Amino acid sequence: MKRACAVLFFLATAVFAWPQQRPAITGIAFVRVYSRDAAASAKFYGQTLGYASSKAGEITRYPVNDLQWIEVAPLPSPAPASRLAAVGFMTRDARALEAYLKANAVTIVDPLRKGRFSVRDPEGNLIFFVQEAKGAAVPPAVPATAVSRRMIHTGFVVHNADAENHFYREILGFKPYWRGGRTDTSIDYISQQVPEGSDWLEYMLNTNSNATQKQLGGSNHMSLGVEHMPDAIAKLQKNGCTGPECSASKTGRDGKVQLNLFDPDLTRVEYMEFKPSGKTCCSEFTAAHPTAVENR
């Protein structure tokens, strides 16, 4: 009897002592931005970028593909400095991930409800985790006018990379992808991919404390992937994008061709080719590049 009790005690102790495993985090689910003018935002995301939309309360959703979408929410009062409201990541088990984060002393802001919950990262950014499901995550279907059908990264201002790394890399398991800067000797951008996918989060370092709204919106951004930039430019022009910015592609510091547009509230939407075609500065890539259709 004593031996049986001892065995049961050992097994129970082992179960509680075993570190909880993190459920898979497979990619970006959505990026939410604030809008001062709903009609102007609808023209930008609907007409210029070519997406269809649906409503969820006050939020307008623009599906990019079955697993990703853009959310546009009314600008609150008083208006925050950043127009980037939230970022959502997809997980294969939202309930288990919520329990895992609680076990790692992460405070839950919005408890799990309807397949999603939220936390705040060390910089105060609102981060959602969304349950991956079969079929389209949000309606409607993506139309042929869409310039891109793949969101590949998002980025925001970061003041303390070490604190963010503890959360994203040590707790959540994000993996290094690339780092670089405005010069060959500076580090202004640090990218890390989700642990079970190739979408990435970019720390935008050294942003001026007196940044203008456009400069801040340039840092707090989202990126839509394309195979060939000339094809994306042609689609933008077909959608009625005629200003000089609509064809002003360039090669970024990471060697990838990019084109930057700003929505009416000056949040940057960056079109980017999936793979580098030019010289890559500062560091080598340390993980696989995203593709047009990702098997999660």
Results as ranks from 00 to 15, higher is better:
136 A>T: 11
126 L>K: 14
15 V>A: 10
241 C>A: 09
49 L>P: 10
196 E>K: 10
99 A>T: 10
134 K>E: 12
115 G>W: 11
59 I>D: 14
276 P>F: 08
44 F>Y: 10
54 S>R: 03
271 Y>T: 01
237 Q>K: 14
84 L>W: 09
129 F>W: 05
59 I>E: 15
163 A>D: 12
71 E>F: 04
21 Q>V: 12
49 L>R: 08
170 E>T: 14
96 A>I: 07
281 C>R: 15
237 Q>R: 15
3 R>D: 09
281 C>S: 14
231 D>Q: 11
264 P>A: 05
63 P>V: 05
77 S>L: 11
266 L>W: 13
58 E>G: 03
119 V>F: 01
257 V>Q: 13
39 A>M: 08
295 N>C: 01
221 H>K: 05
149 R>I: 01
213 Q>D: 15
124 G>M: 04
272 M>G: 01
92 R>C: 02
23 P>H: 04
96 A>Y: 11
211 A>E: 12
249 S>L: 02
277 S>M: 06
19 P>S: 04
205 L>F: 07
88 G>R: 06
227 E>D: 13
145 T>S: 15
92 R>S: 12
209 S>H: 04
167 F>M: 02
39 A>H: 08
198 S>H: 14
153 H>D: 09
268 R>A: 13
47 Q>C: 02
98 E>Y: 04
173 G>E: 08
78 P>T: 09
120 R>W: 01
232 A>E: 07
203 Y>I: 00
188 D>H: 11
7 V>D: 03
